[in-house]
């Protein structure tokens, strides 16, 4: 009897475990090993070079540009997306239900498109001569503000951020709406009776009670901000330009591996990115551990 249970457990676990080890863990392990070699991607052998690849990262100006840009993305994208998401979600709660439902669906639309499609569409929007953005500005008499959005170092990264935020905010509206709906109505009513305004209700009732959703959103968005490869690769000048203004780590990694044939060095970038992402996730989840509100 007990014997059979073990057999069942093993039978259920082993195939999944084997798949996980072969297709998830072993590539990770290989990347760690390759980051210590000079593997070219086509040779049958690789020389061990120790920490050389990691030392080189520090002096690679394009990689440092990428780190700077990813850091900026990490600062801006999650904050703005979450702020917008929370704002829209709490507005939806107060609006009449049918209209709110409709909006929720509309907000979710970008989530249905592949990121590549989104990047292509936005590169049309940003086209300096025929794009929607500049045409719109000219139509309302603001032609002086028209820019070559993706070719100006000052605007290119902002343009990328806008696309990232636009494409993800809908998902978080839905996520936060669900979290807000989980809050008992009486709490809002009580707040209302106590004379709380909209801002007080939001900051004292809504926000503390959806804290965990916000935390999860930070982790997801943080990971997305450390990536951003697809949008940058498809949309930007160069790509990654002008002159490194929108370079991201993923793009550096891709170019180093597939155009320069330096898989060892690219793996080192990947490992660095891995630790950055891991640190971020741990920090974000730790920071919210302190208190847990219990809903009576």
């Amino acid at each position: 009897m007990k014997h059979g249970r073990w057999r069942f457990l093993l039978g259920a676990l082993v195939p999944a475990l084997v798949l996980h080890v072969v297709f998830v863990l072993s590539p990770y392990a290989q990347a760690f090993w390759l980051s210590l070699t000079d593997w070219t991607g086509v040779a049958g052998e690789a020389q061990f070079v120790g920490a050389d690849n990691y030392v080189r990262l520090g002096g690679d100006s394009l990689f440092l540009d990428a780190v700077r840009n990813n850091a900026l993305l990490l600062l801006v994208v999650p904050l703005v997306t979450i702020a917008l998401g929370l704002f829209l979600a709490s507005m939806l709660r107060t609006s009449s239900s049918r209209l709110g439902q409709g909006y929720r669906i509309v907000y979710f639309f970008p989530q249905l498109l592949s990121l590549v499609v989104i990047a292509v569409l936005w590169s049309f929007v940003y086209n300096p001569n025929t794009g929607l953005l500049n045409s719109g500005l000219r139509a309302v008499g603001l032609g002086a503000m028209a820019q070559s959005w993706l070719a100006e170092p000052a605007f290119a990264l902002v343009a990328v951020m806008v696309v990232l935020i636009w494409s993800s905010v809908g998902f978080y509206v839905v996520l936060f709406s669900a979290a807000i709906e989980g809050i008992p109505r009486e709490l809002f009513e009580a707040a209302l009776l106590d004379g709380a305004g909209k801002w007080a209700t939001f900051s004292r009732v809504t926000l503390p009670l959806v804290r965990e959703s916000v935390q999860v959103a930070f982790v997801y968005l943080g990971i997305a901000a450390l990536d951003a490869f697809a949008v940058v690769q498809v949309m930007t000048v160069g790509p990654g330009g002008p002159d490194g203004a929108t370079e991201v780590i993923g793009l550096s990694l891709y170019r180093t591996a597939f155009s320069y044939g330096k898989f060892g060095y690219a793996s080192a970038m990947g490992v660095a990115l891995f630790f950055a992402t891991l640190t971020l996730a741990v920090l974000a989840l730790r920071s919210g551990r302190k208190e847990r509100l219990e809903l009576a």
Binding site: V21, V22, L25, S26, Y28, A29, Q30, F32, W33, L34, T37, W39, A43, G44, E45, A46
Partner: peptide, 18 residues
């Protein structure tokens, strides 16, 4: 055990026969 075994698998990519 898995952690020890994994690096052993790591040789795979470059294990092409010469």
């Amino acid at each position: 055990t898995a952690a020890i075994a994994v690096p052993a698998l790591a040789g795979c990519v470059t294990a092409g026969k010469d």
